[in-house]
């Protein structure tokens, strides 16, 4: 086979692979959305779920998903970005740094059910909190933190070295260089990492089963006092997220319309991830444009 033929074959193979990926994606999306949207309505999104009778919605689960995501990112992003900056800029290259890096990678690849069990021991039993949003968020942090650290480290490493040199040569301190040059330049990559991490949080069920629980107390959305038991903002209450809800009604649901509710929930879940992605990217590009002065 000569080089020209080989080149044509390779091109063909890659086109086929791309085609397979795109059709799997489109097939999956349209299947879920087609089956789901028949059950999605404003009423579905705004009624609380029901344990026994048909016609329950997913109001609390949807809110819980976003709220757990928010609390998780609130913990993960500062710690993860800080850890990444340390690894990229302060840690001396050598054995200890390499050991830390391997540990981070192992942590990132732990099965989420194991992290769920760890969370049960640490954040539910040992602390005595019971099933809480905070416990769930901390468990999710355990497996998102390594991703965030790694992404930040790589993003900072990929900022051209001349920029750092230029800043230091102006008599700018290391910290100011990190703050004003390295982090803004690395921002788009860090944001992508953050979005990936957020997507994982949104879809995670196993790690939340034993930490945030399978139930939600009766909530009053007019109560904004985060210390009140019935306030949705209370982080010391149990919270079933959308992904957990889909799992639980399918395995132990007593409602007659299990299929309808889980199909609808799946569609809402996918759309939420999609919307969150687009929104985060849009805001990210606005910030990036403002910093880099590009229009």
């Amino acid at each position: 086979m000569n080089a020209k033929v080989a080149d044509r074959v390779a091109t063909g193979v890659f086109i086929v692979i791309a085609f397979i990926i795109v059709s799997v994606l489109i097939g999956l999306f349209s299947f879920i959305l087609y089956h789901g949207f028949q059950h999605v309505s404003l009423k579905f999104l705004t009624t609380p779920s029901s344990n026994m009778s048909a016609g329950g919605g997913i109001r609390d689960q949807l809110f819980n998903s976003f709220y757990v995501l928010f609390i998780t990112m609130l913990i993960t992003v500062p710690l993860g970005v800080g850890g990444g900056v340390y690894m990229a800029e302060y840690a001396r290259p050598g054995r200890i740094t390499n050991i830390i890096r391997s540990c981070i990678e192992v942590l990132a690849s732990l099965p989420s059910i194991v992290i769920g069990l760890f969370g049960l021991l640490m954040f539910v039993t040992l602390t005595g909190w019971g099933y809480t949003i905070l416990g769930g968020a901390l468990a999710l942090t355990v497996f998102n933190l390594p991703v965030m650290v790694r992404v930040t480290e790589d993003a900072i490493h990929s900022v051209p070295r001349d920029l750092k040199e230029a800043s230091l040569a102006l008599g700018i301190t290391h910290w100011h260089t990190i703050k004003t040059i390295l982090l803004p330049s690395a921002f788009p990559t860090i944001l992508t990492g953050g979005i990936l991490a957020a997507g994982r949080v949104f879809g995670e069920a196993a790690a939340l089963l034993f930490t945030a629980g399978l139930s939600t107390p009766r909530l009053d959305y007019t109560d904004w006092n985060p210390f009140s038991q019935i306030s949705p903002l209370n982080i010391f209450r149990p919270a079933e997220t959308l992904a957990v809800h889909i799992w639980s009604i399918n395995t132990q649901g007593l409602i007659p319309d299990v299929d309808a509710v889980s199909n609808g929930s799946a569609a809402v879940l996918i759309l939420s991830v999609l919307l969150f992605n687009l929104l985060a990217r849009w805001i990210g590009s606005l910030i990036h444009k403002k910093v880099t002065a590009t229009k």
Binding site: P160, D162, L163, A166, P184, V291, T292, A293
Partner: peptide
């Protein structure tokens, strides 16, 4: 430096 290395900011 050897190559102009302006920061990715405005002039």
């Amino acid at each position: 430096f050897q190559k102009g290395n302006p920061f990715p900011q405005s002039i």
